[in-house]
Computed example of a mutant assay.
Amino acid sequence: MDIMIDDLQGSGVIELLQAHLADMYATSPPESVHALDIEALKHPSITFWCAKQADIVLGCVAIKQLTPTHGEIKSMRTAATARNQGVASTLLLHILDVAKSRGYQRLSLETGSMDFFASARRLYERHQFDYCGPFSDYELDPNSLFMTRLIER
């Protein structure tokens, strides 16, 4: 599996992100959906990666820089055909390394509180993310859970 910075132009990545957004809107009220669309993911504060094998998109993840020492995980998604193959863990380990190399002290995320998001929460828990309160511009929302992890130097 190759993980590389992606320009959000390829059809495989676009289809994966469209499926991600569709699932978010199908499982959460619109005001509780914090997933970014393709144009928003092109913001200069965001770096977007794609995992591929033989030119097949397996997954994606992004980091949004909130401050020089705090990053946020965005758009973490594994393709349906690649689930339970370690793609999400590999992507998460990759961005933890990136966060460390950037000098981040903390990496945080927002995820849903519904059963649909249980496997994602278990993934983050396995990688030492702890539950926390809202960060950045987020507010308390019964449909959202917030997690964070200190980055070891």
Rank of each mutant, 00 (worst) to 15 (best):
T90M: 09
K64D: 15
R121S: 03
M114F: 10
M76Q: 08
F117I: 03
A99Y: 11
T69W: 00
D115I: 15
I73L: 13
A99T: 11
F116L: 05
I73T: 02
T111Q: 04
Y104D: 12
A99V: 12
E72W: 11
M76I: 12
P68R: 00
A82R: 13
A82G: 07
A80T: 13
K74C: 03
S75K: 08
L109Y: 03
T111M: 15
E72K: 10
M76Y: 10
A88V: 08
A82Q: 08
M114R: 14
D97E: 15
V87R: 12
A62D: 05
L109H: 01
I95D: 01
E110L: 07
S119Q: 14
H94D: 09
E72R: 10
I95S: 01
G86I: 12
R83F: 02
T111D: 03
S75W: 09
L91I: 09
S119V: 14
I63N: 03
A88M: 10
S119D: 14
R102M: 07
V87W: 06
T90F: 07
A99F: 10
A62V: 02
A118I: 07
A88D: 04
G103R: 04
D115E: 15
T81N: 03
E72D: 11
R106M: 07
T111E: 06
Q85V: 01
S113I: 05
L109K: 00
R121Q: 15
I73P: 00
L93D: 08
L91T: 03
R102V: 00
Q65D: 07
T111Y: 05
R102S: 00
L91F: 04
T69G: 01
D115R: 14
I95T: 04
K74W: 02
S108P: 11
Q85A: 08
V98Y: 06
Q105K: 14
K64G: 09
A118M: 09
S119F: 06
